[in-house]
Nucleic acid binder design. Structure first.
Lengths: 104, 104
DNA sequence: CAATCGCATAAGTGTATGCTTATGTATATG
DNA sequence: CATATACATAAGCATACACTTATGCGATTG
């Protein structure tokens, strides 16, 4: 769960696509492959990178592996980002939404 | 200022160190090198990667190039992160600080 | 319990990356 | 205007990365 592994994991567009898919809902590796022009080993390797980075976690379900977003990776990025909050533009729309979300 | 370039730029520890140094205060390339066991061309190349990612911006000052943090890159990360706020753990200390900061 | 299924791992390969040394290009200075 | 300074760019090289095919392993199934 180091910065190195997190940012490196997200530097690859295929891995970001996998992550976004998992953000919609947890899924096993085969389901993730659907519509993704990617070999089975490649998917497995990408998932390992995401898991080692703490962005994704897995759970065995019979002979399937269910993957889901791991909040720890996101928390790490949030904390990294918070270090530089002095430089954030005052009006980022997304952050206002965030603000509202957290305020509830 | 695409996700690819931003995350790739931050995936390198040397570039993160440069970025952190600039977050303390803007500096020219030579000043950045001080205490950083890195060649002049390497620094120049790293700064180019950070600039192309939108994480850093430059301004010519005579024969010096002054570098500073570019808020746009950070804003991009914040927005990327905001997409997954559904997965954030409820109590991240840094985010509470953030919340307070944004609220003022 | 043999066959199959879902996934992981191994080994090999082309390309990207980060570094180096050498050189180019503005700007300043004597 | 010749030289020095601050930085950028070029070219080359070792390593990392993302992919492939082949194979291994655990769990289900007939």
């Amino acid at each position: 769960m180091a910065a190195n592994e997190i940012f490196r994991a997200l530097a690859d567009p295929t891995r970001r696509a996998i992550f976004e898919k998992l953000a919609i809902g947890s899924m096993n590796a085969s389901a993730l492959r659907e519509g993704m022009a990617i070999s089975q080993p490649a998917m497995s390797q990408h998932l390992a990178v995401l898991r080692d980075a703490g962005l994704v976690r897995e759970e065995r379900q019979g002979r399937f592996m269910n993957y889901e977003v791991d909040p720890e990776g996101l928390a790490f990025i949030a904390q990294w980002l918070a270090r530089y909050r002095a430089y954030w533009p005052v009006r980022i729309e997304a952050l206002k939404v965030l603000l509202k979300d957290m305020g509830q």
